[in-house]
Design a protein around this nucleic acid. Sequence first.
DNA 1: CTGTTAGCGCGTTCAG
DNA 2: CTGAACGCGCTAACAG
Lengths: 339, 339
Amino acid sequence: MTTTARPRKVTLRDVAALAGVSVATASKALNGKDQVNEETRRRVVDVAERLGFTPNTLAQSILAGTSGTVGLLTNDLDGRFSLPILMGAEDAFGAGQTSVLLCDARDDAIREQYHLRVLLGRRIDGLIVVGSKTDPRPSLGQKVPVPVVYTYAPSDHDADASVVADNVRAGSIAVEHLLATGRRRIAHISGDVTYAAARDRAAGAAAALAAAGLEPVGRVRYGSWSEAWGRAAAGVLLDEGAPFDAVVCGSDQVARGVLDLLRDRGIRVPDDVAVIGFDNWEPMTSGARPTLTSIDMQFETMGRRSAERLFAALDGTDAPGVESVEPRLVVRGSTVASA
Amino acid sequence: MTTTARPRKVTLRDVAALAGVSVATASKALNGKDQVNEETRRRVVDVAERLGFTPNTLAQSILAGTSGTVGLLTNDLDGRFSLPILMGAEDAFGAGQTSVLLCDARDDAIREQYHLRVLLGRRIDGLIVVGSKTDPRPSLGQKVPVPVVYTYAPSDHDADASVVADNVRAGSIAVEHLLATGRRRIAHISGDVTYAAARDRAAGAAAALAAAGLEPVGRVRYGSWSEAWGRAAAGVLLDEGAPFDAVVCGSDQVARGVLDLLRDRGIRVPDDVAVIGFDNWEPMTSGARPTLTSIDMQFETMGRRSAERLFAALDGTDAPGVESVEPRLVVRGSTVASA
DNA sequence: CTGTTAGCGCGTTCAG
DNA sequence: CTGAACGCGCTAACAG
């Protein structure tokens, strides 16, 4: 056990003393104010460097009334969606001087409330709340003294600012791509029906089909977000005998299961049947045979936009309301042979 | 655009004034000191509640000299390993009063240095550094004025504190499990040889085989951490003709590829060949057919231990050095039929 | 150009 | 039991 007595933090006072000036002068010198002799400045800067002086941001904050810190309150730290969102946000903030305080509430209102208190105590300048599902979530209320942006899950209150993925549009894009590749008999195997994401994607897909004057092949088959369900549902679909030349799948995992079963049954993809998923989750898309065409929900962009809107709100230039991020089609081998 | 002029933060002064007492009394009342009349306290608490008073942690910190904040500097935010580590740490901290400042350095030394400065400026009490690979990484040096714990990737400096996964042990556990299920001819398909994790696991596996007086089936086949590589390598292995009854795979993804190819070739798992992976990554293990036996590296435990050691270091009761976390075998259908 | 003074929000003596 | 005064590290306003 090394009892390396950590030295007391070096303060501006120390620097000033050793440089033979007052604290105020030292402060000015280090902050590039122009009311200080060039030589004096050099001396101060030099001493500061030598002492390894790091200004105490806390003290600055308490004075400035703004902490240069935002809270990131997530309910989906184990899920794979909050991570890219987090990265996008961290990215947008990192450019400036803003640091991120991360909290995980695990979908527990009590824990959320607790973390909120802590964050407010730390005088965060703003807050981003990441939901665990895309369904609207309860607002934190209007009494929170800093701007709040809800992302992934929108707030259920109109006056709040939210950034969400456009799942309806994603559904349409999927179907439009299949139509563009000449498919006409399109089935739909989705995930857990209690998720708005599943229902929204289905709605978008249905709308695109209807717009093309086509009927879907059977109803949307809801189940769970798993490969096993994809396999099972695809099996049932085949056994029912209605011909189809494409399957829209609720997620990449479901799509993966569908691909596996089609392969088992000797059905060629994409020649006989095209398959498309959602999320563009690399481990799933790249490992599939053939590689999986998917709709990327642009989570990183969502994170970045959330950060940007938070800044805007701080400037007082943000309009409340829900903002959708446009999804993006990524074409691979499961819909186009050459891809 | 709602220009809701945000009200000035309510301070202890405001509370005291409205309660008709001095700041000092208000402070004592709210902090449960026993030198205050019960009725006065009630009144103060009441006013505080009504005003939505939240004590300014920054002000407290500046005084206490400790911020109740730790830095979490990761280089693998996009990878899937840092996330569970982060959760474990967040968990351990959350119990107390500690908040986490998250930074992503993306394996860039410049960015890392920059973030370090910012974090120190914010007077973090300690720092956890998460690597992107398991290979040792350069130490931040001994001049950092707060305790540092390196995790996932250990520091290359002996005097530093590190928490790592025991990949060698993991390799042994994998082989021992296969031996326990009666396998004797064990092949090994791994990932990217430039990763210490791949080499360590192979070393552990080889040692366990040797201890049992067995020879491996061919050399370790290194490649990449992908399903495609797993398929390709398994194909080659079969084509070479040397009989084998088990395959240790460098990761769950590789294992997934191996399983797929064996299935294609009509080889039954686990009857003819057992397959085992590493990481116990749920999307991979549960989607596989059969479900995949895997070694869980206990990332969450690593995060928790890192947090605990950081606390210990703050108390001055931590011994430096590398600590390994024991991996855990999770048995599923790819090694045991009934599982 | 430099030093002195005041004060940010809070906790903690120490008198009253 | 209560309140006035001081200090934490720093910056802004004002004097010198």
